[in-house]
Design a protein around this nucleic acid. Structure first.
Lengths: 157, 157
DNA sequence: TTGAGAACATCTTGACTCGGAACTTCTCCA
DNA sequence: TGGAGAAGTTCCGAGTCAAGATGTTCTCAA
């Protein structure tokens, strides 16, 4: 698989979109390998992280999906898995009986914390390739690109 | 769908991987909308672009897939579509009868050029959000992340 | 109060994905 | 020469995805 050599050579003529996707694929692959050790998927970790950190913003499954960039049906099947694993619960909202709020359990919170630490290590290993200044620019640029109110198809992870 | 507001606020605590994927999703969505006007997919355009620009590197389907970050079977179905549309041909290699080299047709080259110009406009519209200096850092960082010889699962687009 | 329409979660369904197996052809060494 | 293993392409099947439909509940205005 040493076919990747030409990339650097002709990177200028390849479109920005591909570059972004390819980088995401590569980084995602490293993260996925790490998170697999904890028995959950990257997407599961993402959901747990959102539920652990920011419970107010995720009052409904629909809002949670929009926030994370996940399709509603994809999110549902992920919540099914997490619920089956005892990492989250869906609690009925007493105020609105349509809503079943996803809530992280203690077990889920614990797993999320461990997995999060492991992922932070992976992230750090990527960081070492860049200067602090470069990381600042990169992060700012990515978050700017990630924002936007236009609806998007599919799931981001 | 104005749920995206919180992103900027709590972006610091979200992991780099998600940010990258979300940015790719957003940018990809804009590119996909544009390319759809030409009746092909983003992935189709990617393949055409590779075949148009760098035919030497793409002598076999396997190499082409590895170069672009596409799964071999995914690439095959994409090549089927492009071939059906008359945009590429698979020509048997006289030297190696296992190989059927994908080659872009004149029609394909023409479409690729038009679509490429349209996508360049989209890319330019993204560029305006950043300074030249920022773009340089961003592009360099992304191409560094995109490189690597470790095998990766799935398809990048 | 009641009816229309929106919001939410879930289900259905058809399409797509992709790892692995199968098949053909090539290479290289004994 | 011939046989083992690698390379290239295609096929297969289990799994995944997501658009739209469904059914329930809520909101708001008449």
């Amino acid at each position: 698989m040493e076919v990747q050599q030409p990339i650097a050579a002709c990177v200028e003529k390849w479109d920005f979109n591909w570059l972004l996707h390819r980088a995401a694929q590569r980084v995602g692959s490293a993260f996925a390998d790490e998170i697999a050790k904890f028995g959950i998927s990257l997407r599961g970790q993402l959901v747990l992280q959102a539920l652990a950190s920011d419970e107010e913003a995720a009052r409904t499954q629909l809002k949670l999906g929009a926030m994370l960039g996940l399709d509603k049906t994809t999110l549902m099947s992920e919540l099914d898995k997490l619920e089956r694993a005892g990492l989250i619960m869906r609690v009925p909202d007493p105020k609105d009986r349509r809503v079943r709020t996803p809530v992280i359990t203690d077990k889920g919170r614990e797993l999320q914390k461990e997995a999060g630490d492991a992922l932070a290590d992976v992230e750090r290993s990527f960081r070492t390739r860049f200067s602090h200044q470069e990381m600042v620019v990169l992060r700012k640029a990515l978050s700017e690109l990630a924002e936007g109110e236009s609806p998007v198809h599919g799931s981001c992870i």
